[in-house]
Amino acid sequence: MDRKAFCHIIDHTLLKPEATREQIEKLCIEARENEFATVAIEPVYIPYAASLLQGSKTGITSAIAYPHGSWSIKAKCHEIGLCLKAGASDCDYVLDLGALKEGNWDQIRKEARECRKATGSAILKIILEVSLLTDEEIRIASLISAEEGADFVKTATGYLASPTIEQVAIMTEAVAGTKTSVKAAGGFSSMKRVQQALDLGVKRIGTSSAFKLLEELQS
């Protein structure tokens, strides 16, 4: 993969709670200059990022129900609507992890369906937080997400343990043959690890180490 194509699959990420406007500005300038897919930021900074990225090829990923996922469906849909109105192009929401661990798949399906409706034509990514899940839970959650029309299933928030490559493989296998892709995030800070994910069919990388990866790619 050449540098330009690689940049186009990167969600250039800054989700630290102490992030400042100055840091968001730097993130957006870098993303705009390199044509990263999106900047991934907290909702409060969406209007500012939208003003900085106006006219560029870079979108804005908003973190929804982040990082624990313990919002009601109604609250998640409301937050999605607010973020889209503010200028987001992508919405990454953390699913209801408690419901998932209880095996309440009807709740997981309903949540995915309602969030898909709320997102409309924008891009929806569902975060599974795979380090907390069994292999079977990862498989079922990925499949339900695909069946309900998610554009991506995403490995992790980056706040907990990094996903293993084996867990990424379960996700890519679960959504194979559907219109849903996999976004790898959480500890993807080396080109070796990123390449392993890409070889499995991952289509988007969420990282705060974009320039380190680019240096490794070019070398």
Rank of each mutant, 00 (worst) to 15 (best):
C91E: 03
Y93G: 02
L95Q: 13
D96K: 01
D96F: 05
D96C: 13
G98Y: 13
L100H: 00
K101V: 00
G103H: 04
G103A: 09
N104I: 01
W105C: 10
W105L: 11
I108W: 02
K110E: 15
E114K: 13
E114D: 14
E114R: 12
E114Q: 14
C115A: 07
R116D: 05
R116W: 10
T119Q: 04
G120L: 07
S121V: 10
S121P: 02
A122I: 05
I123L: 11
I123M: 11
I123K: 03
L124H: 01
L124I: 07
I127N: 04
T134D: 13
T134W: 01
D135N: 08
E136C: 04
I138P: 04
I140P: 13
S142P: 12
L143E: 15
I144M: 08
S145E: 11
S145D: 08
A146I: 03
E147K: 10
E147F: 09
E148Y: 02
E148S: 09
A150G: 03
F152C: 05
F152D: 02
F152V: 00
K154L: 09
T155H: 06
T155L: 05
T155W: 04
L160T: 13
A161K: 13
A161Y: 12
P163L: 02
I165T: 10
I165A: 02
V168C: 14
A169Y: 02
T172W: 07
T172L: 07
E173D: 14
A176Y: 12
G177Y: 07
A184N: 00
G186T: 03
G187S: 06
G187A: 06
S189K: 12
K192N: 12
Q196M: 09
A197R: 03
A197D: 09
L198P: 09
D199V: 01
D199E: 15
G201N: 02
V202H: 06
V202F: 05
R204V: 03
I205N: 03
T207D: 00
S209W: 01
K212V: 13
K212Q: 14
K212H: 15
L213P: 07
E216K: 02
